[in-house]
Amino acid sequence: MSLTLERGARTALLGVSGSGKTTLLALAAGLEPPREGRVLFRGEDLYALEENKRASLRLAHFGFVFQDIQLFPLLDVFENVRLPLAFRGDADAEERAREALEAVGLARRMRARPSALSGGEQQRVAVARAFALRPLLLFADEPTARLDRDNARAVWELLMELGREHGTALLVATHDEALVARCDSRYRLEAGRLRAA
C-alpha cells in the first residue's frame, strides 16, 4: 500500500473496526515502527531517525485529535492548550493558546477543569490544542464518534478551518459519512490492503 498526504489535503480513512485504521495512523505519525516499508516525511524516512529526534519532529509538525478526548484532567483548559506549545518552546504560547480557545468559542471557559465541560466542549478544547500548534499534519482518530450531530459538525468545521488557515494536511479515521463527504480523498482499509474508496 502507498499513501501520500499533500499540504492542505484532507484524507479520510475508512474501514470496519479492527481493520487497522488506528495502527496505520500510529505508523504514519512515527509512533510505531513498521515491520516492513517506510514512512517518509518531507522525503526523510521517519523510522531511520533516532527515537528522540522522531519525537522532536512530531512536536514540531504533527497534531492529534482523538475519539477519547485525552486532556489532562487536573490541568485547566488553558493549560491543556498551552502546554504542548510551551514544550515546543514557542515564545507566544500563551497568546496562541488564548487565540485558539477564542476560535473554538471557549475563551470564557479557560480556567475550567475538563471535567466541568461537556463532551463536545472537551473535544473543542482538543481541537483548539491542535489548532494552536498549527501543525503540518493532523492525525484525527474518530474525532466525532462520541459527539452528537451538532457538536460533531462544529468540530468538523474547526478541523476544516485549520486546514484552510494553515495548510495543515489532515488524515482522519472515521465512520462519520458527513465528515467523509468533506474530504478530498478517501481510502478504505480492508484485509490489510488500502484501496481508494
Binding site: L31, R54, R58, P84
Partner: peptide
Amino acid sequence: LTLWGLGP
C-alpha cells in the same frame, strides 16, 4: 506527552 512529541 509521548504523542505530542516528547522523546524518552
